[in-house]
Computed example of a mutant assay.
Amino acid sequence: MRQIVLDTETTGLNPRTGDRVIEIGCVELHNRMLTGNNFHRYLNPDRDSEEGALAVHGLTTEFLRDKPRFAEIAQELRDYVQGAEVIIHNAPFDLGFLNAEFKLLGLPTFTEHCSSVIDTLVNAKEMHPGKRNSLDALCDRYGVSNAHRKLHGALLDAELLADVYLSMTRGQNSLSMDMEEETTSDGVMLEVVPLADTFVLAASADELAEHEGVMKGLDKAVKGECIWRNYASA
């Protein structure tokens, strides 16, 4: 399965009032493994960032002035995410901006290029109700180092989120950690995973004798046969 962990930085909070995307960072996962095939672009929004947003990301108008505009990288981004499952923290925010950028260019929405979207903020709230579930809080909870995160950056945040997502969903892995193939059952994609080799150690004669002694003691305590005898018979 191909997944893209995505984050954006923007000039403000609302694309409906003209705020724009100024940075896109994407990290690729294939079968839950980082591939190194990342996507990262700074963008010239043709406007200044709001003071609050600038304090968060630190990307000044001067720094962005010679960067490409969204229209120049749109096709490259479309090709990169095509058909992938996209993972975002607080997805409505980023999707709202990306869909608005695509709409300005007369293109299908960003979400139409993806197979599905996972919102890790929604997942985190379900797993940890009543707790802080910001990216920084999740990094602390799952032991992902974010000591180098002084300002928000789209690629850095996508890399951190990838580590957090893999930690949050670690229970989905098999013992072997390698997925073999996917099949479809009633329209649902299922992962077929080979189990790691397992070994069964039979109890020794001494251990069986010791176990029987414990069982007899339990029989005596209940003045009959203890419940564990039923499981032994089965």
Score class of each variant (00 low, 15 high):
Leu156Glu: 04
Leu156Gln: 02
Leu156Thr: 04
Asp157Pro: 00
Asp157Thr: 01
Ala158Tyr: 06
Ala158Leu: 04
Glu159Tyr: 07
Glu159Leu: 08
Glu159Ser: 13
Leu160Asn: 07
Leu160Ala: 03
Leu161Phe: 04
Leu161Gly: 03
Leu161Cys: 01
Asp163Leu: 13
Asp163Phe: 01
Asp163Met: 10
Val164Gln: 00
Val164Gly: 01
Val164Trp: 05
Tyr165Ile: 05
Leu166Tyr: 05
Leu166Arg: 00
Leu166Met: 07
Ser167Cys: 11
Ser167Pro: 02
Ser167Met: 05
Met168Leu: 00
Thr169Ile: 02
Thr169Gly: 00
Arg170Lys: 12
Arg170Glu: 13
Gly171Ile: 04
Gly171Val: 05
Gly171Tyr: 14
Gln172His: 05
Gln172Phe: 07
Asn173Pro: 00
Asn173Ile: 00
Ser174His: 13
Ser174Ala: 10
Ser174Glu: 10
Ser174Gly: 15
Leu175Ile: 12
Ser176Val: 09
Ser176Met: 15
Ser176Tyr: 09
Ser176Trp: 14
Met177Phe: 13
Met177Ala: 12
Met177Tyr: 14
Met177Asp: 14
Asp178Glu: 13
Met179Thr: 04
Glu180Met: 09
Glu180Ser: 10
Glu180Ala: 13
Glu180Phe: 10
Glu181Gln: 14
Glu182Cys: 09
Glu182Asn: 12
Glu182Ser: 11
Glu182Pro: 01
Thr183Pro: 02
Thr183Lys: 15
Thr183His: 11
Thr184Pro: 01
Thr184Tyr: 15
Thr184Ile: 14
Ser185Leu: 02
Ser185Val: 06
Ser185Trp: 03
Asp186Arg: 15
Gly187Met: 04
Gly187Asp: 08
Val188Cys: 10
Val188His: 15
Val188Ile: 15
Leu190Gln: 13
Glu191Asp: 04
Val192Pro: 06
Val192Leu: 13
Val192Gly: 07
Pro194Thr: 09
Pro194Lys: 08
Pro194Met: 13
Leu195Arg: 10
Leu195Pro: 05
Ala196Thr: 03
Ala196Ile: 03
Ala196Arg: 14
Thr198Gln: 12
Thr198Pro: 00
Thr198Trp: 08
Phe199His: 08
Val200His: 02
Val200Glu: 06
Ala202Arg: 08
Ala202Trp: 08
Ala202Asn: 10
Ala203Glu: 06
Ser204Ala: 11
Ser204Asp: 08
Ser204Thr: 15
Ser204Gln: 12
